[in-house]
Design a binder for these strands. Structure first.
Lengths: 144, 144
DNA sequence: GCATAATAATTATGCGCATAACCAATATGT
DNA sequence: ACATATTGGTTATGCGCATAATTATTATGC
């Protein structure tokens, strides 16, 4: 592959990251959330109570990141942490009532953001978009 | 759009961002670069000397980010900053010889990364990928 | 010509992400 | 059973990104 084409791809991914994140930030700000935190809330809403190691795996980020995000969401009253009875190292994270309500609001925003993001693309392309993006992600995923 | 589909798209973009950046980081680390810096070097290699406001525009990030990145690249000896003769507010940024050599190495890595990223996709999809990504980016771009 | 607006850059601060080092608790191998 | 390895979590530190506020210079309106 020549450099022009390669750069078009890499640069497009970089810019999409920046812009999609920035747009998410502006939508989440009125809810008092920063981008990244919504993923944690949605994962808890989907899966129910989890320990941080599971969150780290599900969100695709490292344990120290989860420590800080959970701390801030806990300070905001959206989640609760309790020691796991079966393993005294682990702490179980779950949504509070406020967190559950917030997650519902995030779901609405998430739909609006996705629709805005794919606007103007042919329906067929939209349909195969998740598959394409997942392939790209899998190709550069060194996490395993 | 229902939440499942919306989340598939938003989450896929978020994960692609994380993984592509992480992969870029591991490729750039041997060159002593952090992700983001390569974009600045490549832009200077493509366009020649520029002032920071132009870099900010071209890279799609804010002026304070450019200030810090240029400071670090300058400390590494890869770029040089000189006051602009025509406008004493502006500073002209250009590659040093070391920076030019480094940019060439980055170009090689960039091709390898793009090939790795699109591996397994049909050629037709690869061909339209930049267009699709740019459409997505444009849809959420509030910068103008 | 001079007050005012706009622009280039910087500093301060905060968030998400990372890695490295560390502690506490559980699992394992002999 | 006990030393060792593994796992869950935290702290410290550093980078890229952001916004808000500040300074210095240039452009503009009357």
């Amino acid at each position: 592959m020549d450099f022009e084409h390669a750069d078009a791809i890499n640069q497009a991914i970089r810019l999409l990251s920046l812009r999609h994140r920035a747009r998410a930030a502006s939508l989440l700000a009125p809810l008092g959330l920063h981008p990244g935190q919504e993923a944690l809330l949605l994962e808890l809403a989907r899966h129910g109570p989890m320990i941080q190691a599971q969150l780290s795996e599900a969100l695709g980020c490292e344990p120290p990141s989860v420590t800080l995000m959970t701390r801030k969401l806990e300070a905001g009253g959206h989640i609760r942490r309790a020691p796991a009875p079966s393993d005294r190292r682990a702490s179980i994270v779950e949504l509070t009532d406020s967190g559950k309500a917030l997650a519902e609001q995030v779901k609405q925003l998430w739909c609006a953001l996705a629709e805005e993001t794919v606007r103007g693309l042919p329906a067929a392309t939209v349909a195969e978009l998740p598959g394409i993006l997942n392939t790209l992600t899998g190709n550069v995923d060194t996490r395993r």
